[in-house]
């Protein structure tokens, strides 16, 4: 799952020079993930992993890194 999200973010939302050096804890918001990117990301995740991420939990803390994203998604995956 993390790998899939990685590919989506780096191919579609932000560009980083060396994705392989971008760790699972590195700050995605500092790397340029903005509100529009977050919206596309959430819509993609919901469709791809058949999960519903509650609007009330969309927050910098839950989307700031790959680890944070994974944890957030797993909480809502049945």
């Amino acid at each position: 799952m993390k790998q899939h999200i990685r590919e989506f973010i780096f191919n579609e939302l932000i560009f980083v020079a060396e994705p392989e050096k971008f760790s699972d804890n590195d700050d995605l918001l500092e790397a340029g993930l903005d509100s529009m990117g977050i919206m596309r990301l959430i819509m993609h995740i919901e469709e791809q992993f058949s999960v519903t991420l509650p609007d009330s939990e969309i927050d910098p803390d839950n989307v700031k890194s790959f680890n944070a994203l994974e944890q957030w998604i797993l909480q809502h995956k049945a």
């Binding site: 560009f15 020079a17 060396e18 903005d34």
Partner: peptide
């Protein structure tokens, strides 16, 4: 290589000006 070449761009362009694909 592309990655070495464009590394400095992060410091030079505002976030909304960063190309999202090369």
């Amino acid at each position: 290589t592309l990655s070495n070449t464009i590394k400095p761009l992060r410091q030079q362009l505002a976030p909304y000006m960063q190309p999202c694909k090369f």
